[in-house]
Computed example of a mutant assay.
Amino acid sequence: MEKITGLLKIRVKRGIDLVVRDILTSDPYVVISVANQRWKSRVVKNSCNPEWKDEVTIPMGDRDPNIPIGLAVYDKDTFTADDKMGDAKIDVKPYMEVIEKRLENLRTPTTIDRIQPDGDNCLAEESSIVWKDGKIYQDMVLGLRNVKRGKVEVQLEWIQPPNSSRRP
């Protein structure tokens, strides 16, 4: 069993300009995949700009930060298989590198790093890693792949276990 060094909270905030998969709209939900685990958000009916405000907390240990976390958006269907509305990867490496620095007592808020969109990530715009009120957050807007359009806004937050003084 791997040692848990902390918890990574992923907040799935909202979808932006998602594609229509039904006649006039879609019933989207998000699936987060980490190794052999999957987490599913709630379904938002009749919206191409859904607000999920759902979250999942993932135990982090010896997991390789070079392996991105999978994110996929689907349209919920009643009588047929759910339609895929695009996918993205959440690149956690820059965030985990900041966590490893063990920053403390910074002014709040302080921007620690800025990550630019490039061919190695799915960022649709610049993403900032910020120290705020004793925690480190990264807000990101991910452009969906394998689809004409659509974005998903997520936030990462690191949670240190109470009995752990060690970060990754």
Rank of each mutant, 00 (worst) to 15 (best):
114 R>A: 14
87 D>Y: 04
4 I>T: 13
63 R>C: 01
156 L>M: 14
44 V>K: 07
126 E>R: 14
70 G>K: 02
91 D>H: 06
78 T>W: 05
26 S>G: 02
160 Q>F: 10
151 K>G: 03
128 S>P: 00
22 D>P: 00
77 D>M: 08
111 T>S: 14
28 P>R: 11
92 V>S: 00
13 K>F: 04
48 C>L: 05
98 V>N: 01
124 A>Y: 06
167 R>Y: 06
165 S>G: 04
132 K>T: 10
119 G>D: 07
21 R>K: 15
69 I>L: 12
51 E>F: 14
123 L>D: 07
78 T>R: 09
98 V>L: 00
123 L>I: 06
35 A>R: 12
89 K>A: 03
96 M>K: 01
93 K>D: 02
35 A>D: 13
125 E>M: 14
69 I>C: 02
112 I>W: 12
148 K>A: 15
34 V>H: 11
46 N>I: 05
94 P>N: 04
41 S>H: 09
22 D>H: 07
131 W>C: 13
163 N>P: 06
77 D>P: 00
143 G>I: 00
76 K>R: 15
44 V>D: 01
38 R>Y: 04
106 L>Q: 05
140 M>E: 08
36 N>T: 12
150 G>N: 04
154 V>S: 12
75 D>T: 13
96 M>C: 02
10 I>V: 10
29 Y>K: 15
118 D>R: 13
135 K>I: 02
2 E>M: 08
147 V>G: 09
79 F>K: 12
28 P>N: 13
93 K>V: 02
157 E>G: 15
71 L>A: 11
100 E>V: 02
121 N>H: 04
3 K>Q: 11
18 L>A: 12
134 G>H: 01
135 K>H: 15
23 I>F: 13
73 V>N: 05
130 V>Q: 07
64 D>R: 04
144 L>S: 09
98 V>W: 01
96 M>Y: 00
107 R>L: 08
113 D>E: 15
83 D>R: 04
5 T>G: 09
63 R>H: 04
165 S>L: 05
78 T>G: 02
158 W>K: 07
109 P>N: 13
125 E>F: 10
66 N>T: 05
37 Q>P: 01
131 W>I: 09
16 I>E: 05
143 G>S: 11
68 P>V: 08
125 E>K: 15
67 I>C: 04
81 A>Y: 01
28 P>D: 11
17 D>Q: 04
9 K>H: 11
21 R>G: 14
78 T>N: 03
61 G>D: 09
24 L>Y: 11
115 I>Q: 08
8 L>P: 12
98 V>I: 15
46 N>Y: 08
15 G>I: 01
143 G>E: 12
131 W>N: 14
67 I>R: 06
41 S>T: 15
